[in-house]
Design a protein around this nucleic acid. Structure first.
Length: 167
DNA sequence: GCCAACGTTGGC
DNA sequence: GCCAACGTTGGC
C-alpha cells in the first residue's frame, strides 16, 4: 500500500538520493521498519547535506549499491531534521568514532520514512543509457557520494519511469 | 575478485 | 600546504 506523502506547503520541495547496500539495509528493511535513522554515514559532504540542507518532507530516492542490479528501488521521505548519529558514541558499533563525544558530536543524520517500493527497479544501467540523466550525479563515473541532491527534472522523470513500469 | 576513483591521514 | 600512502566505495 502506498503511504501518504506529507505536504509541507510553505517550502520548496527538495529531492535527494541515498545509497545503501541491499545486504546491509534494503528498501524492504525500510518498509518493515517504516522509519529509520540514516546513521553510519562517515563522509563529510554527505553529512553536510543531511545536517544543513535536508528538511522534513523532502523526497528521497532509495538506491541499492553493489546490488544485482544496482539501481533505484523505491521512494522515502525525510521524517526528522538532522540529529546526532547515535552510532558514533557506541564503542561496540562498527561506525564508532573515538574522536567524537556526546558534547561535541561529529556525525549527524536524519530519519527517513518508507513511502513506496518500485515494482521494478530503475537500474544504473538504464540511468547511464538515458541522455536525460547525463548530468545526474549517480549516472556519472566515479560517483561515490552516498547522500546527494537530485534535480527536480531527474526526480520527476524517474517517478514517471517507475509509474510506467507499474502499469 | 579486480581495480579505478576518490577521501582521509599524517609526515615533512 | 603538499603529497604519498592508505582505506573505502562501488561498478563491473
Amino acid at each position: 500500500m502506498k503511504k501518504q506523502i506529507k505536504k509541507i506547503s510553505s517550502q520548496k520541495q527538495q529531492y535527494w538520493l541515498v545509497k545503501s547496500e541491499n545486504t546491509c539495509y534494503s528498501i524492504d528493511d525500510l518498509r518493515r521498519d517504516t522509519v529509520t535513522s540514516w546513521s553510519g554515514v562517515r563522509n563529510y559532504q554527505a553529512r553536510n547535506y543531511m545536517r544543513d540542507d535536508m528538511r522534513v518532507g523532502d523526497l528521497v530516492l532509495f538506491y541499492h549499491s553493489n546490488s544485482k542490479p544496482s539501481g533505484i528501488y523505491g521512494l522515502a521521505q525525510v521524517h526528522t531534521k538532522a540529529h546526532a548519529d547515535e552510532s558514533q558514541f557506541d564503542p561496540k558499533d562498527e561506525h564508532y568514532d573515538p574522536k567524537s563525544s556526546v558534547l561535541h558530536p561529529i556525525w549527524s543524520c536524519v530519519d527517513i520514512a518508507f513511502v513506496q517500493k518500485f515494482d521494478i527497479p530503475i537500474t544504473l544501467r538504464e540511468l547511464k543509457h538515458n541522455p536525460v540523466f547525463q548530468d545526474m550525479y549517480i549516472a556519472r563515473k566515479g560517483d561515490r557520494l552516498s547522500v546527494q541532491p537530485v534535480a527536480q527534472k531527474h526526480f520527476d522523470y524517474i517517478l514517471q519511469l517507475a509509474q510506467k513500469e507499474i502499469s
